[in-house]
Design a protein around this nucleic acid. Structure first.
Lengths: 162, 162
DNA sequence: TATTGTTATACTCTATAACTATA
DNA sequence: TATAGTTATAGAGTATAACAATA
């Protein structure tokens, strides 16, 4: 055992435990309002995921959605059918490959996803607002370096940093 | 607008945005292995939640589980039946009120939940290990004050801090 | 022949309603 | 009369298999 190895290892475990506890708290607390909103809109979780996928992804094929959602093609086909029937998505023939259908979000679908997404963000905001100034400042300082990572920065919604 | 209000408000929004992005990253990344383990064990999400409830809660009635899981009593009754059949939970008559059944975790059920829980923690640990030393130190410093909050400290598993 | 999407079928999970047994 | 739990039934969502259209 090296003296220099101990602190880093301790920080890994300490940070893992703290991060786990925080994540569980956020999922439980902020997730409640999220699930209520999803239910209020009469959506299922896979449908919400599909809307989120389409919101970032553009015009996707059933196959592409099936791969990224981890659902069978028939399940996606039927799910998309439901979204189209409710006016949240639209289906168009692909001119380049007529076997494919291209699924896109309608304006209503986009609004619906944003509504769900806003409720989730509001849950996180409520948590942040519940913190003491010192706690919030410390948390902000701890998160700031992580936001430089592209894989995390990519998850910031478009107009959020304005 | 007061000059002192602006920084705090800015920190709330900045922190909310960063926390949202981190939470989404963790749910997506660490959640993947979690879902794989749940599937590998042939469990559904409500079953996992039920195991978690029983793990902390002790001997619960169907009614109590129904309330806390947000599921109907018949759904819980059948779900528990499945857990009992698989040897993960046990059902006993309540001697004080013979209308009630008391549901508890078996040793196998406890091991099963810990297995699922460990995979989730491992996902968080992998993220923490992926960080640079400076990032990890900063995150640890940012989380430390939050761990003083009882509602978050309560979510730390029993033997985790040893 | 291979691939995309849909339809056919069966299974699981859920909720509401009706029922049994206790209180 | 009210409550805890189960059973009956129906609806939503899923997967596998079989099929149609296109490449």
């Amino acid at each position: 055992m090296h003296a220099t190895a101990a602190p880093a290892q301790a920080t890994v475990e300490e940070t893992t435990i703290a991060l786990s506890a925080l994540a569980r708290h956020l999922m439980g607390e902020a997730g409640r309002g999220f699930m209520r909103e999803v239910e209020r809109l009469g959506l299922s979780m896979p449908q919400v995921k599909a809307l989120g996928l389409l919101e970032e992804g553009g015009a996707l094929t059933i196959k592409a959605m099936s791969d990224r959602l981890g659902l069978s093609e028939p399940a996606v086909s039927r799910g998309v059918e439901t979204l189209v029937r409710r006016g949240l998505a639209s289906r168009a023939d692909d001119p380049d490959d007529r076997r494919c259908k291209r699924v896109s979000l309608t304006a209503k679908g986009r609004r619906t996803f944003e509504s769900v997404s806003d409720v989730r963000t509001a849950g996180f905001r409520a948590f942040v607002e519940s913190l003491e100034d010192a706690e919030r400042e410390a948390l902000a300082a701890g998160l700031r370096p992580l936001m430089q990572r592209p894989e995390i920065a990519a998850l910031v919604p478009e107009g959020a940093s304005r």
